[in-house]
Design a binder for these strands. Structure first.
Lengths: 243, 243
DNA sequence: CGCAGCGTTGAACGTATTCAAAAGAGGTGG
DNA sequence: CCACCTCTTTTGAATACGTTCAACGCTGCG
């Protein structure tokens, strides 16, 4: 438990340090944070639309996604999340959540009481700036997703999604994009790309036939990274170095 | 010219005040801002992808949009902008722009040197917080757009886009959603919804046939606001009160 | 062992695109 | 003031793309 806590602290500090310049006082403030470590099973909602947050959640291990649903019940995943990602920074300043956050795999989450974190923000503007920068990068990623879902043909669209995930996974220190395994189901890929699961299946097979990926069941593995980036029209500059 | 400057100051201060609590010192700091007022014709790029910003641009009059393009040249509009909107807040903290910003109509823009604005941000944390909140709302709007483009059927999708625009237009003090005229072409609506202009034309006619909108050439006018919201699955809570 | 979820495949269908062509509107210059 | 040019809107027809429906195999878990 102590080891887990130390680990969690490192994760948060590393994340914020990658987003802005922190001095020793900033790191001390982060070190003084009171927080707990929770675990959640796969497909478990961590944030529910309409609810106000009482804490700040940081993904420490496992994968998650954000999603929204239409009145008709159709679900659209709007982003994927990796260890180190802050899952509900928006609740720091906005009222209730406008979307859901759900685990994809089983996950461990660092939970900081909201009042506690707000206190730190007031005292340490560097930390607030780092979080603002994180929000700006999130917004940039959403823009790319609007483009991806709106204008790319299906092969390119799925390839782009895979590239983004593999790239961010590497940035988060989880291994190189080559031989990257993906934790999500084809149904989840469909929800993220605005397609049907059936069609995702066909396109993945097409990509596999062309030697870009390999079905390393039950997951998918990237074989030809540079080709996949070309097909997927993937240029990571929109990530602005995001972890 | 003096009148224009005073007007521009009011626009910026009102915008920030709607996003957070400003005290007198904050307002004084904003009042001390050195800036100029420019005009731009319709369809003119105000921000170009890949370029670093040297100034902060605030839309004072007219309409604008953000867009991205694929390697194949397809264009996707990712947001619309109204008077009061800050057009390149992201450049405050990120490096180069990851997208374009273009005028839809002829427009007037308030331009603040970036160094000048950064100075204010360091001194006035309330202003930084208001801008962060603005970024969070932007991100929420992008999420809704991913859902809109990814999962809504065409009629609903176009209706939602119209509702969002009319709603924000009212919030910006430009008149009620009923009898709201839209400044964009059908081609621009197509670029925003991920459709072809031909099909947008057909759907707009369908909406007109059902008495939801009226073709008040060359623009489109909303007739039955509440029905359009229903058809468009439009719930403004994701705008978090954005102007 | 049986159930549930995920992946896979085929066939029919429907929606939106593409192509093409023409009419309307606004602006410019002669 | 009119003629012309361009951009936008409009319409029809053929086409292509992705969905839907249905069924089955596989895997992991209770």
């Amino acid at each position: 438990m102590v080891a887990q806590h130390a680990n969690a602290l490192t994760t948060i500090t590393d994340k914020l340090q990658s987003l802005g310049i922190l001095d020793q006082s900033d790191r001390d403030a982060l070190g003084s944070l009171v927080f707990t470590v929770n675990t959640a099973p796969a497909n478990h909602d961590l944030v529910r639309q309409g609810e106000a947050a009482t804490s700040l959640q940081v993904l420490l291990d496992g994968y998650a996604c954000r999603y929204k649903i239409t009145a008709g019940g159709a679900r659209q995943i709007v982003s994927f999340h990796l260890p180190g990602d802050i899952l509900d920074a928006q609740q720091l300043l906005l009222g209730s959540a406008d979307h859901f956050v759900q685990t994809i795999t089983s996950a461990t989450i660092g939970v900081v009481p909201l009042a506690e974190f707000r206190r730190i923000l007031k005292l340490r503007p560097n930390i607030a700036e780092a979080l603002w920068r994180d929000t700006l990068i999130d917004a940039s990623i959403y823009r790319e997703w609007v483009l991806n879902v709106g204008k790319r043909d299906v092969t390119s669209r799925i390839a782009h999604m895979l590239c983004e995930f593999a790239f961010r996974r590497e940035n988060a220190g989880l291994g190189p994009p080559e031989r990257c395994e993906l934790p999500m189901t084809q149904h989840q890929i469909a929800d993220a790309t605005g397609l049907s699961a059936v069609h995702v299946n066909r396109v993945l097979h097409e990509l596999a036939r062309n030697g870009l990926i390999a079905a390393d069941k039950p997951e998918v593995k990237i074989v030809d990274w540079s080709q996949l980036c070309r097909i997927g029209d993937f240029d990571p500059s929109y990530l602005h170095g995001a972890a």
